[in-house]
Write a protein that binds this DNA or RNA. Structure first.
Lengths: 207, 207
DNA sequence: CCAGGACCTGAGCAAAAGCTCATAATAGTG
DNA sequence: CACTATTATGAGCTTTTGCTCAGGTCCTGG
Protein backbone atom coordinates (compact mmCIF):
# COMPACT_ATOMS: atom_id res chain seq x y z
CA UNK A 1 0.00 0.00 0.00
CA UNK A 2 1.29 3.46 -0.82
CA UNK A 3 2.09 5.19 2.43
CA UNK A 4 2.17 8.82 1.41
CA UNK A 5 3.28 11.76 3.47
CA UNK A 6 2.59 12.03 7.16
CA UNK A 7 0.94 15.43 7.42
CA UNK A 8 -1.81 15.37 9.98
CA UNK A 9 -4.74 16.06 7.71
CA UNK A 10 -3.91 17.56 4.37
CA UNK A 11 -7.41 17.08 3.08
CA UNK A 12 -9.72 19.64 1.66
CA UNK A 13 -12.42 21.10 3.83
CA UNK A 14 -15.74 21.66 2.07
CA UNK A 15 -16.50 25.27 1.20
CA UNK A 16 -19.43 24.84 -1.15
CA UNK A 17 -22.69 23.03 -0.42
CA UNK A 18 -21.96 20.64 -3.22
CA UNK A 19 -18.86 19.49 -1.38
CA UNK A 20 -20.67 19.04 1.90
CA UNK A 21 -23.17 16.92 0.04
CA UNK A 22 -20.47 14.75 -1.45
CA UNK A 23 -18.90 14.26 1.95
CA UNK A 24 -22.21 13.19 3.41
CA UNK A 25 -22.90 10.79 0.58
CA UNK A 26 -19.51 9.21 1.14
CA UNK A 27 -20.18 8.76 4.83
CA UNK A 28 -23.63 7.36 4.27
CA UNK A 29 -22.30 4.92 1.73
CA UNK A 30 -19.45 3.98 4.04
CA UNK A 31 -21.88 3.19 6.82
CA UNK A 32 -23.78 0.84 4.55
CA UNK A 33 -20.73 -0.79 3.06
CA UNK A 34 -18.90 -1.34 6.35
CA UNK A 35 -22.05 -2.71 7.87
CA UNK A 36 -22.57 -5.12 5.03
CA UNK A 37 -19.04 -6.29 4.35
CA UNK A 38 -17.12 -5.56 7.53
CA UNK A 39 -14.22 -3.16 7.76
CA UNK A 40 -11.54 -5.02 5.82
CA UNK A 41 -13.82 -6.11 2.98
CA UNK A 42 -15.51 -2.73 2.89
CA UNK A 43 -13.11 -1.32 0.33
CA UNK A 44 -12.76 2.34 -0.45
CA UNK A 45 -13.65 1.64 -4.05
CA UNK A 46 -16.86 -0.03 -3.02
CA UNK A 47 -17.70 2.95 -0.84
CA UNK A 48 -17.03 5.38 -3.66
CA UNK A 49 -19.08 3.28 -6.05
CA UNK A 50 -22.01 3.10 -3.67
CA UNK A 51 -21.81 6.85 -3.07
CA UNK A 52 -21.75 7.34 -6.86
CA UNK A 53 -18.62 9.35 -6.45
CA UNK A 54 -15.20 8.77 -7.89
CA UNK A 55 -12.56 7.23 -5.70
CA UNK A 56 -10.54 10.41 -6.00
CA UNK A 57 -13.29 12.42 -4.34
CA UNK A 58 -13.24 10.14 -1.36
CA UNK A 59 -9.57 10.81 -0.84
CA UNK A 60 -10.13 14.51 -1.13
CA UNK A 61 -12.09 14.50 2.10
CA UNK A 62 -10.47 11.66 3.99
CA UNK A 63 -6.74 11.06 4.23
CA UNK A 64 -7.25 7.32 4.39
CA UNK A 65 -9.74 4.58 5.00
CA UNK A 66 -9.39 4.65 8.78
CA UNK A 67 -10.40 8.30 8.83
CA UNK A 68 -13.74 7.45 7.25
CA UNK A 69 -14.57 5.00 9.99
CA UNK A 70 -13.32 7.44 12.61
CA UNK A 71 -15.65 10.14 11.33
CA UNK A 72 -18.60 7.74 11.50
CA UNK A 73 -17.63 6.95 15.07
CA UNK A 74 -17.47 10.61 16.03
CA UNK A 75 -20.89 11.25 14.56
CA UNK A 76 -22.36 8.29 16.38
CA UNK A 77 -20.95 9.43 19.71
CA UNK A 78 -22.27 12.94 19.19
CA UNK A 79 -25.76 11.65 18.53
CA UNK A 80 -25.69 9.40 21.58
CA UNK A 81 -24.41 11.83 24.18
CA UNK A 82 -26.76 12.90 26.94
CA UNK A 83 -27.03 16.54 27.84
CA UNK A 84 -27.63 17.34 31.51
CA UNK A 85 -31.25 17.97 30.46
CA UNK A 86 -31.54 14.46 29.08
CA UNK A 87 -30.22 13.15 32.33
CA UNK A 88 -32.79 15.10 34.33
CA UNK A 89 -35.58 13.85 32.11
CA UNK A 90 -34.61 10.40 33.15
CA UNK A 91 -34.66 10.86 36.89
CA UNK A 92 -38.27 11.23 38.02
CA UNK A 93 -40.80 8.46 38.42
CA UNK A 94 -40.80 4.93 39.71
CA UNK A 95 -37.68 2.82 39.51
CA UNK A 96 -39.31 0.73 36.85
CA UNK A 97 -40.04 3.73 34.69
CA UNK A 98 -36.45 4.91 35.02
CA UNK A 99 -35.14 1.53 33.94
CA UNK A 100 -37.60 1.42 31.08
CA UNK A 101 -36.42 4.79 29.87
CA UNK A 102 -32.87 3.46 29.95
CA UNK A 103 -33.80 0.44 27.89
CA UNK A 104 -35.73 2.54 25.39
CA UNK A 105 -32.76 4.82 25.01
CA UNK A 106 -30.52 1.85 24.28
CA UNK A 107 -32.97 0.54 21.72
CA UNK A 108 -33.13 3.94 20.03
CA UNK A 109 -29.37 4.10 19.88
CA UNK A 110 -29.24 0.83 18.03
CA UNK A 111 -31.97 1.73 15.57
CA UNK A 112 -29.57 2.97 12.93
CA UNK A 113 -27.14 0.13 12.62
CA UNK A 114 -25.90 -2.35 15.17
CA UNK A 115 -23.46 -4.13 12.89
CA UNK A 116 -21.78 -0.88 12.04
CA UNK A 117 -21.51 -0.05 15.70
CA UNK A 118 -19.68 -3.27 16.40
CA UNK A 119 -17.33 -2.76 13.50
CA UNK A 120 -16.57 0.76 14.62
CA UNK A 121 -15.73 -0.40 18.09
CA UNK A 122 -13.93 -3.62 17.40
CA UNK A 123 -12.36 -3.41 13.98
CA UNK A 124 -10.40 -0.66 12.31
CA UNK A 125 -7.44 1.00 13.98
CA UNK A 126 -8.87 4.08 15.59
CA UNK A 127 -6.41 6.68 16.76
CA UNK A 128 -5.40 6.60 20.40
CA UNK A 129 -7.06 9.98 20.73
CA UNK A 130 -10.39 8.70 19.44
CA UNK A 131 -10.18 5.58 21.59
CA UNK A 132 -9.75 7.93 24.51
CA UNK A 133 -12.86 9.85 23.52
CA UNK A 134 -14.87 6.65 23.28
CA UNK A 135 -13.68 5.47 26.66
CA UNK A 136 -14.53 8.79 28.23
CA UNK A 137 -17.95 8.68 26.63
CA UNK A 138 -18.57 5.24 28.09
CA UNK A 139 -17.39 6.30 31.51
CA UNK A 140 -19.51 9.42 31.40
CA UNK A 141 -22.55 7.36 30.55
CA UNK A 142 -21.88 5.00 33.43
CA UNK A 143 -21.38 7.95 35.76
CA UNK A 144 -24.64 9.54 34.65
CA UNK A 145 -26.57 6.36 35.26
CA UNK A 146 -24.81 5.96 38.57
CA UNK A 147 -26.00 9.41 39.55
CA UNK A 148 -29.57 8.64 38.66
CA UNK A 149 -29.56 5.44 40.65
CA UNK A 150 -27.75 6.95 43.60
CA UNK A 151 -30.51 9.49 44.02
CA UNK A 152 -33.37 7.07 43.63
CA UNK A 153 -34.89 6.01 46.96
CA UNK A 154 -35.86 2.48 45.81
CA UNK A 155 -32.38 1.44 44.78
CA UNK A 156 -30.79 -0.93 47.26
CA UNK A 157 -27.62 -2.72 46.19
CA UNK A 158 -24.44 -3.85 47.94
CA UNK A 159 -22.01 -2.31 45.48
CA UNK A 160 -23.39 0.56 43.43
CA UNK A 161 -20.46 0.68 41.01
CA UNK A 162 -20.61 -2.99 40.23
CA UNK A 163 -24.40 -2.85 39.92
CA UNK A 164 -24.38 0.10 37.52
CA UNK A 165 -21.69 -1.56 35.45
CA UNK A 166 -23.66 -4.76 35.24
CA UNK A 167 -26.93 -3.01 34.46
CA UNK A 168 -25.59 -0.67 31.82
CA UNK A 169 -23.91 -3.44 29.90
CA UNK A 170 -26.67 -5.95 30.32
CA UNK A 171 -29.06 -3.48 28.77
CA UNK A 172 -26.56 -2.44 26.13
CA UNK A 173 -25.49 -5.92 25.09
CA UNK A 174 -28.92 -7.51 25.03
CA UNK A 175 -30.31 -4.66 22.99
CA UNK A 176 -27.38 -4.93 20.66
CA UNK A 177 -27.93 -8.61 20.13
CA UNK A 178 -31.64 -8.27 19.53
CA UNK A 179 -31.11 -5.50 17.03
CA UNK A 180 -28.31 -7.33 15.23
CA UNK A 181 -30.00 -10.62 14.46
CA UNK A 182 -33.76 -10.43 14.43
CA UNK A 183 -34.30 -12.85 17.26
CA UNK A 184 -37.30 -15.10 17.80
CA UNK A 185 -38.30 -13.22 20.92
CA UNK A 186 -40.42 -10.20 20.11
CA UNK A 187 -39.29 -6.70 20.91
CA UNK A 188 -42.04 -5.89 23.39
CA UNK A 189 -41.66 -9.04 25.41
CA UNK A 190 -37.94 -8.57 25.44
CA UNK A 191 -38.25 -5.03 26.73
CA UNK A 192 -40.63 -6.05 29.49
CA UNK A 193 -38.54 -8.95 30.70
CA UNK A 194 -35.33 -6.96 30.62
CA UNK A 195 -36.90 -4.10 32.53
CA UNK A 196 -38.32 -6.57 34.99
CA UNK A 197 -35.02 -8.30 35.63
CA UNK A 198 -33.03 -5.14 36.07
CA UNK A 199 -35.61 -3.39 38.19
CA UNK A 200 -35.93 -6.28 40.57
CA UNK A 201 -32.18 -6.52 40.84
CA UNK A 202 -31.80 -2.86 41.70
CA UNK A 203 -34.61 -2.94 44.22
CA UNK A 204 -32.58 -5.36 46.30
CA UNK A 205 -33.56 -8.21 48.59
CA UNK A 206 -36.10 -6.38 50.77
CA UNK A 207 -39.43 -6.17 48.99
CA UNK B 1 -7.17 -14.14 -6.02
CA UNK B 2 -6.69 -17.44 -7.81
CA UNK B 3 -9.95 -19.30 -7.68
CA UNK B 4 -8.84 -22.87 -8.32
CA UNK B 5 -11.09 -25.82 -8.93
CA UNK B 6 -14.32 -26.31 -7.06
CA UNK B 7 -13.89 -29.79 -5.66
CA UNK B 8 -15.38 -29.98 -2.23
CA UNK B 9 -12.20 -30.68 -0.30
CA UNK B 10 -9.31 -31.82 -2.40
CA UNK B 11 -6.92 -31.59 0.53
CA UNK B 12 -4.73 -34.25 1.95
CA UNK B 13 -5.82 -36.09 5.05
CA UNK B 14 -3.02 -36.84 7.50
CA UNK B 15 -1.84 -40.45 7.51
CA UNK B 16 1.34 -40.13 9.52
CA UNK B 17 1.66 -38.67 13.02
CA UNK B 18 4.02 -36.07 11.63
CA UNK B 19 1.20 -34.75 9.48
CA UNK B 20 -1.28 -34.64 12.32
CA UNK B 21 1.26 -32.65 14.28
CA UNK B 22 1.73 -30.17 11.48
CA UNK B 23 -2.00 -29.72 11.18
CA UNK B 24 -2.28 -29.02 14.88
CA UNK B 25 0.54 -26.54 14.85
CA UNK B 26 -1.14 -24.69 12.02
CA UNK B 27 -4.40 -24.51 13.92
CA UNK B 28 -2.73 -23.38 17.12
CA UNK B 29 -0.83 -20.72 15.26
CA UNK B 30 -3.99 -19.65 13.46
CA UNK B 31 -5.80 -19.21 16.76
CA UNK B 32 -3.07 -16.92 18.02
CA UNK B 33 -2.73 -14.96 14.81
CA UNK B 34 -6.46 -14.42 14.29
CA UNK B 35 -6.85 -13.42 17.88
CA UNK B 36 -4.03 -10.90 17.67
CA UNK B 37 -4.60 -9.42 14.24
CA UNK B 38 -8.24 -10.14 13.44
CA UNK B 39 -9.39 -12.25 10.54
CA UNK B 40 -8.52 -10.05 7.58
CA UNK B 41 -5.08 -9.06 8.87
CA UNK B 42 -4.38 -12.57 10.07
CA UNK B 43 -2.77 -13.63 6.82
CA UNK B 44 -2.09 -17.21 5.86
CA UNK B 45 1.59 -16.38 5.53
CA UNK B 46 1.66 -15.06 9.06
CA UNK B 47 -0.04 -18.20 10.28
CA UNK B 48 2.43 -20.43 8.47
CA UNK B 49 5.33 -18.39 9.79
CA UNK B 50 4.09 -18.58 13.35
CA UNK B 51 3.54 -22.33 13.00
CA UNK B 52 7.09 -22.61 11.60
CA UNK B 53 5.67 -24.35 8.60
CA UNK B 54 5.86 -23.37 4.97
CA UNK B 55 2.87 -21.74 3.38
CA UNK B 56 2.56 -24.72 1.07
CA UNK B 57 1.98 -27.04 4.00
CA UNK B 58 -0.88 -24.91 5.21
CA UNK B 59 -2.62 -25.29 1.87
CA UNK B 60 -2.05 -29.02 1.92
CA UNK B 61 -4.41 -29.36 4.84
CA UNK B 62 -6.81 -26.50 4.25
CA UNK B 63 -8.34 -25.60 0.91
CA UNK B 64 -8.39 -21.92 1.81
CA UNK B 65 -8.18 -19.43 4.62
CA UNK B 66 -11.84 -19.66 5.56
CA UNK B 67 -11.48 -23.38 6.14
CA UNK B 68 -8.87 -22.75 8.83
CA UNK B 69 -11.22 -20.54 10.78
CA UNK B 70 -14.05 -22.99 10.24
CA UNK B 71 -12.00 -25.82 11.73
CA UNK B 72 -11.23 -23.69 14.78
CA UNK B 73 -14.93 -23.01 15.15
CA UNK B 74 -15.80 -26.69 14.95
CA UNK B 75 -13.27 -27.55 17.62
CA UNK B 76 -14.59 -24.84 19.89
CA UNK B 77 -18.14 -26.04 19.55
CA UNK B 78 -17.10 -29.61 20.27
CA UNK B 79 -15.36 -28.54 23.46
CA UNK B 80 -18.35 -26.51 24.62
CA UNK B 81 -21.12 -29.03 24.02
CA UNK B 82 -22.91 -30.49 27.01
CA UNK B 83 -23.46 -34.20 27.22
CA UNK B 84 -26.68 -35.33 28.91
CA UNK B 85 -24.48 -36.12 31.91
CA UNK B 86 -23.26 -32.53 32.07
CA UNK B 87 -26.84 -31.40 31.98
CA UNK B 88 -27.77 -33.66 34.86
CA UNK B 89 -24.81 -32.42 36.90
CA UNK B 90 -26.31 -29.01 36.64
CA UNK B 91 -29.80 -29.74 37.83
CA UNK B 92 -29.67 -30.43 41.57
CA UNK B 93 -29.35 -27.86 44.34
CA UNK B 94 -30.78 -24.43 45.04
CA UNK B 95 -31.74 -22.14 42.23
CA UNK B 96 -28.80 -19.94 43.08
CA UNK B 97 -26.35 -22.79 42.81
CA UNK B 98 -27.76 -23.78 39.44
CA UNK B 99 -27.37 -20.25 38.14
CA UNK B 100 -23.88 -20.05 39.55
CA UNK B 101 -22.91 -23.24 37.75
CA UNK B 102 -24.24 -21.72 34.56
CA UNK B 103 -22.18 -18.60 35.02
CA UNK B 104 -19.05 -20.61 35.86
CA UNK B 105 -19.53 -22.67 32.74
CA UNK B 106 -19.73 -19.54 30.64
CA UNK B 107 -16.59 -18.18 32.24
CA UNK B 108 -14.75 -21.43 31.57
CA UNK B 109 -15.79 -21.35 27.95
CA UNK B 110 -14.23 -17.95 27.55
CA UNK B 111 -11.01 -18.88 29.29
CA UNK B 112 -9.14 -19.83 26.15
CA UNK B 113 -9.64 -16.82 23.98
CA UNK B 114 -12.51 -14.38 23.88
CA UNK B 115 -11.15 -12.33 21.00
CA UNK B 116 -10.83 -15.38 18.84
CA UNK B 117 -14.36 -16.37 19.71
CA UNK B 118 -15.70 -13.05 18.55
CA UNK B 119 -13.75 -13.24 15.33
CA UNK B 120 -14.98 -16.74 14.65
CA UNK B 121 -18.57 -15.71 15.13
CA UNK B 122 -18.62 -12.31 13.52
CA UNK B 123 -15.90 -12.20 10.89
CA UNK B 124 -14.92 -14.67 8.22
CA UNK B 125 -17.43 -16.14 5.84
CA UNK B 126 -18.40 -19.43 7.41
CA UNK B 127 -20.20 -21.88 5.20
CA UNK B 128 -23.98 -21.98 5.42
CA UNK B 129 -23.57 -25.49 6.73
CA UNK B 130 -21.34 -24.41 9.58
CA UNK B 131 -23.59 -21.48 10.41
CA UNK B 132 -26.37 -23.98 10.67
CA UNK B 133 -24.33 -26.08 13.09
CA UNK B 134 -23.62 -23.06 15.24
CA UNK B 135 -27.25 -22.06 15.31
CA UNK B 136 -28.30 -25.57 16.26
CA UNK B 137 -25.69 -25.62 18.99
CA UNK B 138 -27.06 -22.37 20.40
CA UNK B 139 -30.61 -23.62 20.25
CA UNK B 140 -29.63 -26.87 21.89
CA UNK B 141 -27.97 -24.98 24.71
CA UNK B 142 -31.05 -22.82 25.22
CA UNK B 143 -33.24 -25.93 25.21
CA UNK B 144 -31.05 -27.63 27.78
CA UNK B 145 -31.16 -24.64 30.09
CA UNK B 146 -34.88 -24.40 29.53
CA UNK B 147 -35.22 -27.98 30.66
CA UNK B 148 -33.26 -27.38 33.81
CA UNK B 149 -35.33 -24.34 34.73
CA UNK B 150 -38.61 -25.97 33.83
CA UNK B 151 -37.95 -28.71 36.36
CA UNK B 152 -36.77 -26.45 39.13
CA UNK B 153 -39.48 -25.72 41.74
CA UNK B 154 -38.27 -22.21 42.56
CA UNK B 155 -38.51 -20.88 39.03
CA UNK B 156 -41.50 -18.62 38.53
CA UNK B 157 -41.63 -16.56 35.36
CA UNK B 158 -44.38 -15.40 33.04
CA UNK B 159 -42.79 -16.58 29.81
CA UNK B 160 -40.23 -19.34 30.20
CA UNK B 161 -38.91 -19.11 26.67
CA UNK B 162 -38.32 -15.40 26.85
CA UNK B 163 -36.78 -15.74 30.29
CA UNK B 164 -34.35 -18.46 29.27
CA UNK B 165 -33.37 -16.51 26.21
CA UNK B 166 -32.72 -13.41 28.26
CA UNK B 167 -30.81 -15.27 30.94
CA UNK B 168 -28.62 -17.33 28.65
CA UNK B 169 -27.52 -14.34 26.66
CA UNK B 170 -27.15 -12.02 29.60
CA UNK B 171 -24.75 -14.49 31.15
CA UNK B 172 -23.01 -15.16 27.87
CA UNK B 173 -22.58 -11.58 26.79
CA UNK B 174 -21.51 -10.18 30.13
CA UNK B 175 -18.95 -12.92 30.54
CA UNK B 176 -17.71 -12.32 27.07
CA UNK B 177 -17.25 -8.64 27.73
CA UNK B 178 -15.46 -9.14 30.99
CA UNK B 179 -13.11 -11.68 29.48
CA UNK B 180 -12.42 -9.59 26.39
CA UNK B 181 -11.31 -6.34 27.98
CA UNK B 182 -10.05 -6.77 31.50
CA UNK B 183 -12.68 -4.61 33.12
CA UNK B 184 -12.34 -2.56 36.29
CA UNK B 185 -14.86 -4.72 38.10
CA UNK B 186 -13.24 -7.78 39.63
CA UNK B 187 -14.18 -11.27 38.54
CA UNK B 188 -15.57 -12.42 41.86
CA UNK B 189 -17.79 -9.41 42.41
CA UNK B 190 -19.00 -9.68 38.86
CA UNK B 191 -19.92 -13.33 39.29
CA UNK B 192 -21.80 -12.66 42.50
CA UNK B 193 -23.80 -9.75 41.15
CA UNK B 194 -24.67 -11.53 37.94
CA UNK B 195 -25.78 -14.63 39.81
CA UNK B 196 -27.79 -12.45 42.14
CA UNK B 197 -29.56 -10.59 39.38
CA UNK B 198 -30.45 -13.66 37.37
CA UNK B 199 -31.51 -15.73 40.36
CA UNK B 200 -33.82 -13.06 41.66
CA UNK B 201 -35.32 -12.63 38.24
CA UNK B 202 -36.03 -16.31 37.85
CA UNK B 203 -37.49 -16.61 41.32
CA UNK B 204 -40.27 -14.27 40.28
CA UNK B 205 -42.24 -11.67 42.21
CA UNK B 206 -43.41 -13.82 45.12
CA UNK B 207 -40.08 -14.20 46.90
C1' DC C 1 -18.69 37.22 -18.07
C1' DC C 2 -14.39 35.53 -17.11
C1' DA C 3 -10.56 34.22 -14.07
C1' DG C 4 -9.23 31.39 -10.63
C1' DG C 5 -10.26 28.66 -7.12
C1' DA C 6 -13.10 24.67 -5.58
C1' DC C 7 -14.49 20.36 -6.82
C1' DC C 8 -14.56 15.94 -9.36
C1' DT C 9 -12.79 12.15 -12.28
C1' DG C 10 -10.76 7.52 -13.09
C1' DA C 11 -6.79 5.09 -15.10
C1' DG C 12 -3.38 3.02 -12.99
C1' DC C 13 0.68 2.33 -9.56
C1' DA C 14 2.67 -0.19 -5.71
C1' DA C 15 2.03 -3.10 -1.91
C1' DA C 16 -0.09 -6.92 0.10
C1' DA C 17 -2.33 -11.21 0.39
C1' DG C 18 -4.30 -15.73 -1.26
C1' DC C 19 -2.82 -19.56 -3.26
C1' DT C 20 -0.17 -22.99 -6.75
C1' DC C 21 3.16 -26.12 -8.24
C1' DA C 22 7.56 -28.08 -9.27
C1' DT C 23 10.75 -29.98 -6.45
C1' DA C 24 12.94 -31.80 -2.26
C1' DA C 25 12.92 -34.30 2.06
C1' DT C 26 11.19 -37.95 4.96
C1' DA C 27 8.72 -42.10 6.54
C1' DG C 28 7.08 -46.66 5.99
C1' DT C 29 7.69 -51.39 3.78
C1' DG C 30 9.58 -55.72 1.71
C1' DC D 1 18.79 -50.94 1.01
C1' DA D 2 15.62 -49.70 -2.62
C1' DC D 3 11.21 -48.03 -3.78
C1' DT D 4 6.95 -45.65 -3.20
C1' DA D 5 3.67 -42.85 -0.83
C1' DT D 6 3.44 -39.14 2.11
C1' DT D 7 4.75 -34.78 3.72
C1' DA D 8 7.24 -30.31 3.42
C1' DT D 9 9.16 -26.33 0.95
C1' DG D 10 9.04 -21.50 -0.87
C1' DA D 11 9.61 -18.68 -5.06
C1' DG D 12 6.48 -16.43 -7.45
C1' DC D 13 1.87 -15.85 -10.07
C1' DT D 14 -2.53 -13.47 -9.76
C1' DT D 15 -5.84 -10.71 -7.77
C1' DT D 16 -7.16 -7.26 -4.76
C1' DT D 17 -6.99 -2.86 -2.70
C1' DG D 18 -5.40 1.54 -0.74
C1' DC D 19 -4.30 5.53 -2.73
C1' DT D 20 -2.18 9.23 -6.24
C1' DC D 21 -2.14 12.56 -9.75
C1' DA D 22 -2.79 14.83 -14.08
C1' DG D 23 -6.23 16.71 -16.05
C1' DG D 24 -10.89 17.88 -16.44
C1' DT D 25 -15.81 20.46 -14.87
C1' DC D 26 -18.37 23.58 -11.97
C1' DC D 27 -19.05 27.68 -9.09
C1' DT D 28 -18.51 32.30 -7.47
C1' DG D 29 -16.63 37.02 -6.73
C1' DG D 30 -15.33 41.00 -8.93
Amino acid sequence: MASGHRDIDPRRKPRQVRAELTRDRILTAAAHVFSEHGYAAGTTNRIAERARVSIGSLYQYFPNKDAVLAELMVRHIDRGTWTPADQLDLSPGTLESVVRALVRDAIDNHRDDPRLLRIMIEEGQLSAELRETITRHGEQRVAQVRDVFARHPDVDVRDLDAAVDLVVFTVELNTHRLAAFQQPVAMETFENELVDMVTRYLRGPGR
